[in-house]
Write a protein that binds this DNA or RNA. Structure first.
Lengths: 265, 265
DNA sequence: ACACTGTTGCGCACTTCGCGCAATACCTAT
DNA sequence: ATAGGTATTGCGCGAAGTGCGCAACAGTGT
């Protein structure tokens, strides 16, 4: 009954999700097939990214881990980590900072997890996940409606919460950035929120790896505020950063070792 | 230099966390020790719950997965799942429901992740993690300050957001529950929040597995509101549920197959 | 009816794993 | 400082898990 192949794989996923951890032998007995077959199933499910194989079995992989693992193998991961390291270095003890949603700010949150005497306010689920166990960091969430794609909170609830607070520093992400139009996002709700976030901080940084410079995949924009700093990685050549310089925007280019290549103002 | 044992394990954790996935051979080469030693390290780190071993290596385990796996092997896990299944069955299409923080409500969120046309509002990070990829469920977070232990949001931000909404159903967790004092939590901030949550819903359910019945580990309480329903599992004998009946509180006892043992009103 | 794709079970070689053992490094208490 | 106890490490071996090729078979489309 080879029809059962798809059904069995789905069942394996369900079992793994509910029990968290399953063994090849257990699955083999449950479905009455050989261990070889189970192994093949696990191989396939692993390739699909729904499962992680362990010694003699498999473990469930939730959405966060799924994307997280995918992110880590992405080409921009190193760039994001460099940017995050630099950004973490700007944060001083005792400050209250605002972290936008996104993977880059998630990386920054990871860097900050071991700090003490720090308040991190965020609109991003990724950030919350990274700081969930950081007992020495005060973590606040602005709330709102969860956007599935960006894993961030938006909406009137978010904006209302934001209007009650100010910050020492705000770190924003972006889907794209151009010197002319500023931050680019999928919809106006997000750009308005980012604009608001940037306005309520003493120092505002826009963290984008080089590939996003000069691109605007969507048509909602939030212009750079006065004094905002653009932070990117060494994959950005001077042709990419020049338009920002021309408009008087501070640009910081960080290399993988954390050194800064140029920092005009 | 066996002093390096602890350092090496910490370094392994760091490496695994940043790269997401590492191999025994790679680690062996990096630290200049035998594969056996690495395996022992991984064994220990796995027992400590910081790591998941794969075939020929290990993978990072974030905080969510850590606690999640621990929870799933906990003795009350089956009870929680039974309660969550019953609770999910109460939720009708189109409703807006409120989920408290906690592992039981997290299990409920998991049950609801595949539903459509549903709005879930929550104060719990666990719930958010379970619903992060649930594209057919509208997810809202009330925001607030993250409490590390309960992984839930509390504070004036949470309460302010709560005051702007009402719900068809609210599902609350608890550290303990007695017929006399109601829900028991570690501090007054949490009990006040739960009280508020229960007041703003049409139907309110208190989800607690049997071991928590009759216990009040702390001294902050939130009394049962009128019409609230206590939901627990079959490990609760009639001696445990009787005090609640005596006070006119509806009690639902769910067995692992989802059947209800008693439901007086 | 026929070919084709996908699935399954089996055997085999390879890799990885866990455990016991002896030697060594580290820690601590006197 | 020294001595005793604990923890760590490397090595060898048997056991377990894994991947791959092969042949047989089910389900599908022409």
């Amino acid at each position: 009954m080879p029809r059962g192949a798809r059904d069995r794989r789905a069942a394996i996923l369900r079992l793994a999700s509910t029990s968290g951890l399953t063994s090849v032998e257990e699955l083999s007995n449950t479905f009455g097939v050989t261990a070889s077959t189970i192994r093949r199933d696990l191989s396939q499910l692993e390739s699909a990214g729904h499962l992680a194989r362990t010694y003699g079995g498999a473990m469930a992989l939730d959405a966060h881990h799924e994307t997280s693992l995918r992110q880590r193998s992405g080409q921009a991961f190193e760039a994001k980590r460099s940017i995050a390291t630099w950004a973490a270095d700007q944060v001083r003890t005792g400050e209250t900072i605002l972290l936008d949603s996104g993977t880059t700010t998630g990386a920054l949150a990871r860097e900050l997890a071991t700090r003490r005497d720090l308040t991190v306010v965020t609109t991003g689920l990724t950030v919350l996940q990274e700081l969930a166990q950081a007992t020495n960091v005060r973590v606040e969430c602005l709330g709102g409606t969860l956007r599935p794609l960006s894993q961030g909170f938006v909406g009137s609830l978010t904006e209302a919460a934001l209007e009650r607070m100010t910050f020492d520093r705000a770190f924003l992400g972006a889907d794209g950035v151009t010197a002319e139009h500023g931050i680019c996002e999928a919809d106006l709700q997000q750009t308005r929120l980012k604009e608001l976030m940037g306005q309520r901080a003493e120092h505002t940084y826009v963290l984008v790896h080089a590939a996003k410079l000069g691109h605007h995949p969507f048509h909602a924009h939030a212009p750079f505020g006065p004094g905002w700093t653009l932070v990117t990685d060494t994959a950005a050549d001077s042709a990419a950063t020049a338009p920002f310089h021309a408009r008087g925007i501070d640009v910081v280019v960080v290399d993988p070792d954390g050194r800064v290549r140029e920092e005009p103002h």
